[in-house]
């Protein structure tokens, strides 16, 4: 069995993270190529929305990933706080930029999709609004982390913030839903419901492939980010010095 505790030390995790990052990176590229091909050439034209709906294949995975990464981030933060392991906190903070990026992509593609569908770049739809608030949460996390000079305090403070955030996310989500149904404009609801009902099997497969491509990309990128964090934070450690000497030689 895979020994988790062996890899909770930065020194032994560093080379493993390198191998995993490459593996996930390659897998992500392959899936992305397949997924994009399916999105553009295999998936049929939607009978109601024409070709424009194809942006869904990037919008929906990005939205899913943005939420999923926040949850994973909070889990790492919780682990870091409970067991006082530095690696978990490093993982949490290296996930944040990727999560924020996916949130931004989801908002951006949402706007691009919204223009032909709703006739406006932005509507205060419950999902888009929640996504926007999620972006605020990511930005707050990263801002707090970068405002604190002491890396230990930065990791622990931002970890706590992630936990507070993750408790609040469902409350925020439901309150936005509630708000939206009260102030609902009639044109909004049709689109999402319409596409889910009319989604063909091939569309679903394409969506799945694209989601995994995004997921593996997130894993690869955050692992390589955590590698540089490890080097930075452990720059005094003997193994890092040995590694650098080896590289120079």
């Amino acid at each position: 069995m895979f020994n988790l505790f062996k890899y909770s030390s930065p020194a032994s995790f560093y080379p493993l993270a390198g191998r995993l990052a490459v593996g996930f990176g390659i897998a992500s590229v392959i899936l992305l190529v397949i997924g994009l091909y399916m999105s553009f050439f295999v998936a049929p034209t939607d009978y109601k929305q024409g070709e424009g709906y194809r942006i869904m294949f990037i919008h929906v995975p990005a939205a899913w990933m943005s939420m999923w990464i926040y949850v994973v981030m909070a889990c790492f933060a919780a682990a870091g706080m409970i067991w006082n392991t530095r690696l978990s906190s490093m993982m949490a903070s290296s996930l944040a930029p990727t999560g924020a990026m996916f949130t931004f992509v989801a908002l951006w593609t949402g706007a691009l999709w919204g223009k032909p569908m709703w006739g406006a770049w932005w509507v205060w739809d419950a999902r888009l609004t929640s996504e926007l608030i999620l972006l605020f949460l990511y930005v707050g996390f990263m801002a707090l982390e970068s405002a604190i000079d002491d890396p230990r305090r930065a990791a622990r403070a931002s970890g706590l913030l992630a936990l507070v955030g993750v408790i609040n996310v469902p409350i925020i989500y439901y309150s936005v839903q509630w708000w939206n149904t009260l102030h609902q404009g009639s044109s909004i609801k049709v689109v999402d419901g319409g596409i889910e009902a009319s989604m063909s099997e091939i569309m679903l497969w394409t969506l799945l492939v694209m989601t995994f491509a995004c997921w593996f990309y997130a894993v690869a990128v955050s692992l390589s980010r955590v590698r540089s964090t490890i080097l930075e934070r452990e720059s005094d450690a003997v193994w890092v010095k040995a590694l650098l000497k080896e590289r120079k030689a």
Binding site: D149, D150, P151, R152, R233, E234, S235, D236
Partner: peptide, 8 residues
Amino acid sequence: CVRGDKQL
């Protein structure tokens, strides 16, 4: 004990 990344 450490301060920042420096061991005291």
